[in-house]
Design a protein around this nucleic acid. Structure first.
Lengths: 412, 412
DNA sequence: AGATGTTTTGTGAAAATCACCAAAAATGAA
DNA sequence: TTCATTTTTGGTGATTTTCACAAAACATCT
């Protein structure tokens, strides 16, 4: 029979499990059917080949949190929620996922479930994709009966958080409603906080962390989730006069306690600026990750910086770095100074950097450089001459600082 | 007869003028044929309709400099030199050009001429385009005979300059060779300088300008051209200890003389940084134009800035402005300060701006603000508190400065 | 070795900054 | 209106910073 012309899934089925088995037979691979909240609805049994993620799903009657989070983060679920086409997912060994193909099941404008096909030995072809679409369509009615009985409010907290972090929820009212459904009072203002651990966070550590977070009195944690070695928090910062101070205190205490009580060290905390608009959680999350990224690039200069706000001009580094890629830009002042340094075996560039680091304070800079203040003054005059730059002009100074740091980064 | 199947241009022609007339007859519009250096080779006479640019071309036996420059700048000539397809050129009244279609004539890998068709009453169709391609192909052989007699060295200076400004010449050796052909010694280092006049530069003024440039002793002008109200120069800055000082002096004298001798005022000079690599003329030109653009956006703060180098951090404004478009970014410090100002009818933001403008010099800033130094000190403490910012941290200060200026610009 | 130019350090006077305090002046709430 | 609070101004003196100048140290070249 020609499977593509006739729809093999037209026939009536007793149960969704039976239906899953039939799809599995047609496509020659294990099949799992979930509802919109990733709860297991049905799965095929004819084929005993499978992967760890599927085993966990079947045992727990739900896709593991870790897997859902990852699928949100790398964009699979957003894609599935946008389109009714099959989506191929590359294997992700870290979360026990082998190659799969997924498709969303739609009822009018809404996704009410998913079908997963695991590509154990064979890869699905274009024809299989068409079949899968037909299967998704056929599953709709069966699923609908179950769907009505399910309560939307059962949606898990962490998945909701990932929706926010990935910017999937766009309407403010919708977000607020979700919060209320989850019995959380959304604070007037919030920040996203990320703790980067040295190692991936185990479920045992997770327990300890949650305990610490729950018992913390000063800042309310609205939502949290874990992403490999990162602990991500949505923190309420209402009615606090100096929220950044408070955040700093909070992170310090947390790190101290983690070290004292559980011997977990070398945690890097970073946090976003403060927002009032819940649609901006994605931006806030991005800010926190930017801090981590810049701290990796400039460990020395950002040693004591944990917040996006305090990054200052470093906020723009990636942007400028990007725009100058390939442009072979060169700062005339720095070029001259480097040439001079080379020719005279001096170190005007280093002098300038320390001077700028120390906020143009001559004494501090001289101390750091182990030279006499007058020497520094002399050198600065030299720098102004050789580099044809006015060190009293804030704008010129800033660009110099920026270019100095960029150059430094690019040399490594 | 089917013009598209058979090539009507296969027949032998006595002269190119005769050939031009024939194309004109077939396409029903005036035709002009030029060589690679835009010298007139032949033109149709059957059709008396025409446009000012064509009249000038025929009278001067060459396409006017102004027209060539413009065609370089807006990309028509570069496109013609890349592809053998017809290119449609929109009418440009400023230079007397009505709607035209152009096509390049190729001999192997090289462009040896152009055919121009003027769309006076009718627009050329797709069929006409195909005919034009055939005509270009047929013109090749005729043109080749002339071409061999022409000397490449006759290429005009200004067109060469536009090639450099638009980055059309990519190989350094090629550029140097051109310079030598034109009997110009390329300097070791150079800058691009643009004088923006209040009005378009007339040919009478052009004479005066050239006279001034020629008699200037200190800086050698390698190339120059005029673009509407802009005078563009390629200046040699060899063997000069402080080239920027020299450039500044040069521009000042020029402007002074223009005013004194010819009563032409309000000339804005801008110049690029200094380069050694002649492939970077495009970049240098772009730098000069950036200075003009920023000066338009920040007339007050850049009042005394004429060089890209001195733009300092303002170099990055367009970039940052662009990246933040739609992001609704807001600086937490500034937000707090604005709120405070509104609530208490104070002016911490203005205070901060002046303070930063004055390079954090308390006395200067206090003078400008007409307040006591102690008052300024008090306010700065307040700013640090309210804005949760450390004004001793250069990086935070810089971002604040930048955001302050961006905000200021966006408010206008 | 000596001449020359550059760089660093030392010195002292002038200028500025800073931490105080106290008193007006302005502002806002009761 | 009063009263409390915030903001501005002025002054003082200790401390720091700045600046010009000169001497010393260093480097380079003949």
């Amino acid at each position: 029979m020609d499977l593509l012309q006739n729809d093999p899934f037209k026939a009536p089925f007793e149960s969704l499990d039976e239906f899953a088995d039939f799809i599995s037979e047609v496509l020659q691979c294990p099949i799992t059917i979930e509802d919109a909240n990733h709860r297991l609805i049905a799965y095929s049994t004819h084929d005993e080949r499978t992967d760890p993620a599927r085993i966990s799903t079947i045992i727990g009657r739900r896709v593991p949190e870790k897997v859902i989070n990852q699928l949100w983060k790398e964009g699979t679920i957003p894609t599935l929620l946008r389109s009714s086409e099959p989506v191929r997912v590359k294997s992700m060994n870290e979360i026990g996922l082998s190659n799969r193909v997924a498709i969303s099941i739609w009822k009018q404008e809404e996704v009410i479930g998913f079908i997963w096909a695991i590509e154990i030995d064979k890869s699905l072809t274009e024809k299989d994709f068409i079949l899968l679409k037909k299967a998704a369509d056929a599953a709709k009615n069966k699923l609908l009966q179950l769907q009505t009985r399910k309560n939307k409010k059962e949606e898990r907290l962490q998945e909701f958080f990932w929706k926010l972090l990935t910017g999937h929820l766009k309407l403010n009212d919708e977000i607020i409603e979700h919060f209320h459904d989850l019995k959380i009072t959304p604070a007037l203002s919030f920040a996203v906080l990320v703790f980067k651990f040295q190692e991936n966070i185990t479920s045992k550590n997770e327990q300890n962390i949650i305990y610490l977070l729950k018992t913390n009195q000063r800042l309310k944690i609205m939502l949290y989730t874990i992403d490999y070695n990162q602990l991500i928090l949505l923190v309420a910062v209402n009615n606090i006069d100096y929220p950044f101070q408070e955040l700093e205190h909070f992170t310090k205490t947390f790190i101290l306690k983690m070290s004292d009580r559980y011997g977990i060290d070398q945690i890097t905390p970073v946090y976003s600026t403060i927002y009032e608009d819940y649609q901006k959680i994605r931006v806030a999350y991005h800010e926190a990750l930017t801090v981590l990224s810049i701290k990796r690039k400039f460990p020395f200069e950002t040693e004591h910086i944990y917040s996006y706000q305090k990054l200052g001009i470093y906020q723009l580094f990636d942007l400028v770095l990007d725009s100058r890629k390939g442009e072979e830009y060169s700062n005339h002042t720095l070029k001259n100074l480097h040439e001079y340094d080379k020719k005279h075996n001096s170190n005007l560039v280093e002098t300038l950097e320390v001077f700028l680091n120390k906020d143009t304070n001559i004494n501090d800079a001289a101390k750091e450089l182990n030279i006499h203040a007058n020497t520094l003054n002399y050198r600065l005059k030299r720098i102004a001459e050789v580099g044809e730059v006015d060190l009293k002009d804030p704008s010129q100074k800033m660009l110099l600082f920026l270019d100095l740091k960029l150059e430094k980064y690019q040399r490594n």
